[in-house]
Design a protein around this nucleic acid. Structure first.
Length: 192
DNA sequence: CGCCGGATTTAA
DNA sequence: TAAATCCGGCGA
């Protein structure tokens, strides 16, 4: 993991890494990079505020926020402390604790899309605002660990952004594991 | 202080 | 295709 790097470099490095909480272990399959004030789609676009403060913090911390009044979104803070950037965890596969995940997700059985989507990932891990700012590299609570990196990586544009500026098209912001089906709109991605 | 709209999910 | 359902940030 190279978290002390710009988000577009840290993002693909997070693919295959593990998110562990109690008996649940998820393997990250899809991520999306977000930058600082210069990134018009980032929460940091209006500068530092109470909500996005974790984005300016040291890498390896969690940044969680409530979206659409419905779902929590998990980000891994990247880049050097003092600069804002983070990587949204968009999808994952269940490696352990399937029973817990099914209960959290209120699902009857496992499917490739069980944890495909940022809201689903946080729900599967039972996360909420209490984990905002949590140190993912320290033991306890929610942990980020090295895992099995994908053999190939897919890349493409961001999802859910209602506009597409030249900056957004200039380079890829979304990355996914080529060996996984836990990826939304996989057809929109292409090999790195 | 009130309004607008969003890094989404699910069900109809 | 729309509803669910909050709150951050901006304009007044």
């Amino acid at each position: 993991m190279h978290l002390n790097a710009p988000p577009q470099f840290a993002a693909p490095a997070l693919l295959g890494c593990l998110l562990v909480r109690d008996e649940v272990t998820l393997r990250i399959t899809e991520v999306e990079a977000y930058g600082g004030p210069e990134d018009s789609a980032s929460h940091a676009r209006h500068g530092r505020t109470a909500r996005n403060a974790p984005m300016w913090g040291p890498p390896g911390r969690a940044y969680l926020y409530f979206c659409y009044g419905v779902h929590w979104m998990l980000n891994v803070v990247t880049g050097p402390e003092g600069e804002a950037s983070a990587v949204l965890i968009r999808g994952a596969e269940v490696m352990a604790g399937l029973g817990c995940v099914l209960a959290q997700r209120k699902a009857a059985k496992e499917t490739p899309q069980l944890c495909a989507g940022p809201g689903k990932v946080a729900q599967a891990l039972g996360l909420d605002g209490a984990f905002d700012g949590h140190d993912l590299l320290a033991p306890g609570g929610l942990e980020l660990r090295a895992g099995l990196p994908p053999r190939t990586i897919l890349t493409g544009h961001r999802l859910g952004i209602g506009f597409a500026t030249a900056e957004h098209r200039a380079r890829p912001w979304r990355f996914a594991a080529g060996d996984s089906l836990a990826v939304l709109q996989r057809k929109a991605l292409h090999p790195l």
